[in-house]
Computed example of a mutant assay.
Amino acid sequence: MRLHEYQAKQVFAEAGIPTPASALASTVDEAVAAAEEVGYPCAIKAQVHVGGRGKAGGIKLVDDEDEAREAAEDIIGMDLKGYHVDRVLVEAAVDFVNELYVGVTMDRGEGKPVAMVSTRGGVNIEEVAEEDPDAIAREHIDPAFGMHPYQARKAVYDAGVDRDIAGDVASVLTTLYELWDEKDGSDAEINPLMVTSDDEVVAADAVMNIDGDSLFRHPDLAEMEEEAAEDELEAKANEYGFDYVRLEGNVGIIGNGAGLVMTTLDLVDYYGGKPANFLDIGGGAKAERVTNALDMVFSDENVDAVVFNIFGGITRGDEVAEGINTALEQFDEIPKPVVVRLAGTKAEEGMEILNTDLVQVEATLEDAVQATVALAEEVNE
């Protein structure tokens, strides 16, 4: 479960991490009233689960009521990278002199949580990791003992954080790890953690992703789940019982099994495409479930072509083929081109059932992915 920024900041603030004064608004008038409440200058920030909101026009700094109204009118209701903005966070601006990054996630290669600190805050941390990995200090943590104080201090000093604020940054990092651990987090980060001229640190942004299977242990977070659902697609995924993550590309991906879907995502990227989603229909998927999966991917306006990757174990190829036919035959015109790769149990029977007037069939996964990427590129030419 991905928390919205305003939800993550609520969790952070309750744990003692400093955050700016803010208020949530869903109408222009509410946003203007909130701006008056928190004071000018302030930022009006779209509450959607995408990066690069500022560059896309989803965050605006305003200095008075007129600017606040204009910004709210621009942002509320906008389409931001395929997401409809229906709420904004109105937040007091921070007069900062520096921007840091702190984060906690799982390092699967090491099999341990890792705490990270960088003085290169305020920019895409993935780009920093790729271009200058030494700019991010990392400290692995034994989950049996938690983060020791010296580990937090070491990460902060290794990153080159100024000594005047090192103690406060280490405290924020420790609290972030404790939240990540207590709340069954998958990721928790602050980017940027702003440093003021008075040597105070403030969380100007907040990210926290929770393991959805752990929500029975966290009733407070479970109450946030419905609000955290980004849009109709995510709500529909919950209704259908799919493991679904919306991404920012244009190649729709459907598969049976998380590993198979992840492999397909990697191949789409390898062959120059951009994945639009992760959608796992699970093992033993019947025709109705396959129909629902196609309905979901077709509903994403960002998708230009769809690759269907099925390897039959429990899942039967003939059932999948029947579902694909059922889903596509209801259209007078197929909304997006579909490429299918079937292998495994009842794959030959499935290939015979498939209506090849409606789909393009490829024998291998590599061929299917390359064909889908090419079809998606044709749409944008």
Rank of each mutant, 00 (worst) to 15 (best):
residue 328 L to G: 00
residue 369 V to E: 00
residue 114 V to I: 07
residue 143 P to N: 09
residue 297 V to K: 03
residue 376 A to I: 09
residue 43 A to C: 13
residue 246 R to P: 11
residue 139 E to P: 08
residue 74 D to P: 05
residue 10 Q to N: 15
residue 346 K to N: 14
residue 286 K to L: 14
residue 343 A to Q: 04
residue 152 A to M: 11
residue 296 M to T: 10
residue 218 H to S: 04
residue 282 G to A: 14
residue 328 L to Y: 01
residue 269 D to F: 12
residue 109 G to R: 10
residue 59 I to R: 08
residue 128 V to D: 00
residue 213 D to V: 05
residue 296 M to P: 11
residue 76 I to S: 02
residue 361 V to S: 03
residue 336 K to P: 01
residue 249 G to F: 11
residue 301 E to W: 09
residue 344 G to R: 00
residue 126 E to Y: 03
residue 180 W to R: 08
residue 13 A to C: 08
residue 360 Q to V: 13
residue 211 D to E: 07
residue 29 D to G: 11
residue 111 G to K: 06
residue 11 V to G: 01
residue 46 A to G: 09
residue 246 R to D: 04
residue 201 V to G: 03
residue 186 S to D: 15
residue 177 Y to H: 07
residue 338 V to E: 00
residue 246 R to V: 07
residue 15 A to E: 01
residue 325 N to Y: 03
residue 105 T to S: 10
residue 296 M to L: 15
residue 157 Y to C: 09
residue 371 A to Y: 04
residue 273 G to W: 09
residue 14 E to A: 14
residue 166 A to G: 11
residue 283 G to M: 13
residue 3 L to Y: 06
residue 62 V to A: 00
residue 105 T to I: 06
residue 202 V to T: 02
residue 358 L to W: 00
residue 310 I to H: 01
residue 348 E to C: 03
residue 28 V to A: 06
residue 107 D to M: 07
residue 131 E to Q: 15
residue 318 D to S: 03
residue 110 E to N: 15
residue 74 D to E: 14
residue 203 A to T: 00
residue 35 A to I: 06
residue 268 V to M: 08
residue 15 A to K: 01
residue 294 L to G: 05
residue 303 V to M: 00
residue 371 A to P: 02
residue 310 I to D: 01
residue 241 G to P: 06
residue 196 T to V: 04
